[in-house]
Design a protein around this nucleic acid. Structure first.
Length: 937
RNA sequence: GCCCGGGUGGUGGAACUGGUAGACACGCAGGACUUAAAAUCCUGUGGCCAUUGCGGCUGUACGGGUUCGAUUCCCGUCCCGGGUACCA
């Protein structure tokens, strides 16, 4: 039987199925191992990194891939440009949520984490990212955390030499102690008494180890934890709300516990000064600067009685030394109890007790309330000899500086407020400044009543004051940092165990050959009821022939502080990263992620990199050369309005006309709302109680929903799963649409209102290749001048846009290009294939499909990015807008090469010129070559 | 309070070193095709005034300034977002 051709009106129109196309190519690429990356010295390297996700049970929503899509585009673009691109992905898999889920359900965190990772990978793969999955890292995998433990051991076995500004082996320090004692050693360390070589020789093992612990970059010290008796567990700071546990609302108390710390403060100066060299946003650098909080000033001793006890203060304003009217101690200051006079004892004790019991949060929320108490004691002013009253006040923080301040009401507003409140007399020290209403914190005014500083401005006086203070031996110039050493212990199960064991209470490092020290398999991670880690219950693991293991685990940021190095050589079993691989990949060229890690992860990772650099383990001093912060995708919540007391819902646009109707706004699932119009049938099906819902519809017969922009969360029913978008429109539409939403760095609400436009764009691309019957309509005729100009302008623009991470504008460039090719009815193979190459980083699946269909060589993923040529872009004619006094009036078209004078003549010779000249002569004519003409009257 | 961003049509946004403000897209309106709808295509779309002259005025939060020319640079004010906070 022969097939008769169908009459044209019955011919089926070929609609491309973008979803199937994506699936097809994802599978083929996987089979071909297209994204496998190897060290290749013949090519320049390029390392594109995403902040790896924590695999939560909720899966990805459309906000997560925003940065991943951008980094994928950069990766593919650089690859087309001939770079050897490293673009890995992995999972930050240790952490609290998995452990809490485990406690609730009894399922082991390792199992739930594995499931979540599988889900994440599937979702990521659906979007078509070009990750080399052979390099996947999982921080909870012993093959990975073995090296996290190894780095910890290096930190434990090193100290920071302030003289060389480098980390050095602790063994060398031991040697120097043995030969010369502690004199001449300038290390970042805790406090200890000075000792001689002879003292050192006398010390026993424990005493020596105690001294060394003061120097180690990973060290033990005491710190307070949030202990909740009712829950029988230690809580993280974010599990405590207003002094009560978030779960259950039980009281939380502070307890001192011995814990691990990392001596990040040793690196404060380097972390600060090296920010200069980084290509990060100013706000990001500023956040790190503020966090490090360097302030320069002086420490000054105020003696309570000559030559005896003194109070040490830190000040950034030594120039105001003669304006000191009182000292204020933090309530926790160790001298408070000692110096308080008998008459003041009761009042001060009461005050200190109140202050101590108030949580930090309370103290912060009552910032404006002034409180304090006089101790009855006086200190002696080091230069004037005047008695200075000593107060306690909770506006002074025990944890910053020395926990004591010299109060200068004339120069500091808080001191001024305090003095005014308690009626303490104020000394004027600034010429021509009235301090009856406020302090003068500037350093502009000349000083008076200030002894040797008189006549100098504050700026000039600082150096002089420090000189005098040092000459008198009552203090010295000092740099203070706000940065604190990082607490590195968690009383949790689901984290890296420490490669440490205790003998007689002294910590000893495990030998490297004992790594990894695996987390014991346990089925009960419930709290122990004691302030210690659940690991204490792993009795078979806890005690070893040589000692007792550390039961704390490392915090979440341990694994994420070096994962970018592991990707370079993820399967190396001999080293944390192979020397050769590290020397080739070196550092991250572009790192894309959110701003929420500004002072956490990004600071720790820089610290670890610098430490490893000092030890000669890595090549670079900084890990992330360029940092791009993608904005957050917010949820766009929809609301329905139930009339109070009824199962009836009123359309949002009718609310204004019915102000009397009592309504209850309720979140409604955004997935049953399109363009803010509710699918009422779907709403009835959404929940059983809605089955009988009635609606008050608007004039168009629609139910319009209310809108609010909020964070995406399950409880607000505004979560959109990328899988759903992909199912409807395909992966490429999702990718392009997310980029089209706006600048990458900007936060914006997710809504699908414009997604149709992107979808239409792809259909238009398709129609350049295929006719309605599904036949290719490509031609091999040479491209015309117009076609080449459009193509090459597009190539140039897209290239520039990717280089400056302006993805939204390149999407519109693609659209313009396709619209113009469409208008020209361009079906030239040569033009369209080049177009596909530049489109492919954004829409790899459709590009590949059309590339193959049009006879492209190999995969479009491996093509070469076309070079734009000036000669094709150059226009032979230029349109000049002609403006009079800055207002554009008409246009003239002239040959591109025309000299300025001729352009001017032509502009003035235009038929409309006389109308605007109004018979007068122009005062001045400005011709900007190739741009515009402005005639000044 | 302080430190960073930012404020452009009904909406998302564009204008890169000052040079035709509103690209591109959504939405909306009108039209074509269709029995109809969807899809697709075409036209229009900042505001005001003229639209029987296809033109004029105005306009980038507000008020000033520099400039031949300002969304862009400078000063002041207001508002929004982020960070941070008795940091001495």
């Amino acid at each position: 039987m022969a097939f008769l051709p169908l009459p044209p009106e019955y011919t089926e129109i070929m609609e491309p199925n973008f979803r199937e196309i994506a699936q097809k190519w994802q599978q083929k690429w996987r089979e071909q191992g297209l994204y496998k990356t190897e060290v290749d010295p013949s090519k320049p390297k390029y390392y594109v990194l995403d902040m790896f996700p924590y695999p939560s049970g909720a899966g990805l929503h459309v906000g997560h891939p925003l940065g991943y899509i951008a980094s994928d585009i950069v990766s593919r673009f650089k690859r087309l440009k001939g770079f050897n691109v490293l673009h890995p992905m992995g999972f930050d898999a240790f952490g609290l949520p998995a452990e809490q889920y485990a406690i609730q359900t009894g399922r082991h965190p390792a199992d739930t984490t594995a499931e979540n990772i599988a889900r994440y990978k599937e979702q990521l793969n659906n979007i078509g990212f070009c990750y080399d999955w052979d390099r996947e890292v999982n921080t909870s995998d012993p093959g990975y955390y073995r090296w996290t433990q190894w780095i910890f051991l290096q930190l434990f076995n090193c100290w920071f030499n302030n003289n060389t500004q480098k980390a050095e082996p602790i063994a060398e320090l031991e040697f120097r102690f043995a030969s010369g004692g502690s004199t001449g050693i300038n290390g970042a360390c805790g406090e200890h008494e000075p000792f001689t070589a002879a003292d050192w020789a006398e010390m026993d093992e424990a005493a020596r180890r105690h001294i060394l612990m003061q120097y180690r970059l990973a060290y033990l010290d005491y710190a307070t934890v949030n202990w909740c008796e009712a829950l029988g567990t230690v809580l993280a700071n974010d599990e405590v709300k207003d002094g009560l546990s978030e779960r259950g609302g039980h009281p939380v108390e502070k307890r001192k516990m011995r814990q691990w710390f990392l001596r990040i403060t040793a690196y404060a100066e380097r972390l600060l000064s090296d920010l200069e060299s980084l290509d990060w946003t100013d706000s990001m650098k500023e956040m790190q600067r503020n966090w490090i909080g360097k302030s320069e000033g002086a420490s000054v001793m105020f003696y309570l009685s000559p030559g005896e006890r003194f109070i040490e203060v830190f000040t950034t304003r030594p120039d105001t030394l003669f304006g000191v009217d009182f000292l204020t101690l933090a309530p926790e200051h160790e001298l408070v109890a000692e110096i308080t006079t008998d008459e003041q004892k009761a009042a001060v004790e009461a005050y200190v007790n109140v202050a101590r019991n108030r949580s930090e949060r309370e103290r912060m929320s009552e910032v404006k309330r002034i409180s304090g108490e006089f101790t009855g004691a006086y200190a002696i002013h080091p230069f004037t000899g005047k008695p200075i009253p000593v107060w306690v006040g909770d506006y002074v923080l025990a944890g910053y500086g020395t926990g004591a301040v010299m109060a200068v009401p004339a120069g500091d507003q808080r001191d001024w407020d305090f003095a005014r409140h308690f009626g303490i007399p104020m000394t004027e020290i600034h010429e021509g400044i009235d301090i009856s209403e406020a302090a003068d914190p500037t350093k502009e005014a000349k000083l008076k009543n200030s002894g040797f500083l008189n006549g100098l401005t504050g700026h000039e006086a600082i150096r002089r004051a420090v000189q005098e203070i040092e000459a008198k031996g009552i203090g010295k110039g000092k740099v203070n940092y706000r940065l604190r050493d990082a607490g590195f212990s968690r009383q949790r199960y689901w984290g890296e165990p420490f490669p440490i064991e205790y003998r007689n209470g002294v910590a000893y490092a495990l030998d490297e050959s004992a790594l990894p020290l695996e987390l014991p398999v346990m089925d009960d991670f419930k709290p122990t009821g004691q302030p210690e880690s659940p690991l204490a219950k792993a009795t078979h693991w806890l005690e070893t022939p040589s000692g007792r293991r550390e039961t704390d685990t490392m915090p979440g940021y341990a694994g994420s502080s070096w994962y970018f190095l592991r990707y370079m050589d993820a399967n190396n079993t001999q080293r944390f990263v192979g020397k050769e691989a590290e020397a080739y990949w070196q550092d991250v060229d572009v790192y894309i992620g959110g701003t929420e890690h500004a002072v956490g992860h990004l600071l720790y990772a820089r610290f670890w990199q610098k430490f490893l650099f000092d030890r000669g383990e890595v090549t670079k001093n900084e890990p992330f050369r360029k940092l791009i912060n993608q904005g957050m995708i917010l949820g766009r919540s929809n609301f329905v309005y139930r009339i109070s007391g009824e199962n009836k819902y009123i359309s949002a646009d009718l609310l204004e006309q019915n102000p009397d109707v009592k309504i209850i706004p309720l979140h409604v699932d955004v997935n049953i709302v399109k363009n803010d119009v509710l699918d009422t049938e779907a709403f009835r099906r959404w929940r059983p109680e809605n089955a009988s819902a009635e609606f008050v519809l608007n004039a168009d017969g629609q139910y319009v929903c209310g809108v609010e922009i909020e964070k995406m969360s399950k409880s607000k029913y505004n979560v959109v799963n990328p899988d759903d978008i992909i199912a409807e429109y395909g992966a490429d539409t999702l990718r392009l649409y997310e980029m089209f939403l706006g600048p990458l760095e900007q936060s914006k609400p997710w809504n699908t209102n414009g997604i149709e436009g992107v979808y239409r764009f792809f259909k238009k691309v398709w129609n350049l290749f295929y006719n309605e019957q599904g036949g290719l309509k490509l031609s091999d005729e040479p491209a015309t001048e117009d076609e080449l100009r459009i193509l090459h302008k597009t190539i140039r623009k897209v290239e520039e846009d990717v280089e400056r991470f302006s993805f939204n504008t390149s999407v519109s460039t693609f659209m313009i290009c396709v619209n113009e090719l469409h208008d020209l009815k361009c079906h030239k193979r040569s033009v369209l294939q080049d177009f596909l190459i530049i489109l492919s980083p954004y829409a790899p699946h459709i590009a590949e499909e059309l590339w193959q269909a049009s006879g492209g060589q190999g995969s479009v993923v491996n093509a070469r990015f076309p070079e734009w040529k000036e000669e094709f872009i150059r226009e032979s004619k230029v349109t000049y807008p002609v403006a009079f006094n800055g207002k554009t009036r008409y246009q003239i078209q002239v040959p591109a090469e025309m000299p300025q004078a001729e352009v001017q003549a032509l502009a003035l010779g235009h038929e409309e010129a006389s109308k605007w000249l109004n018979g007068g002569q122009p005062k001045k004519v400005i011709v900007v070559p190739g741009r515009m003409v402005n005639i000044v009257l």
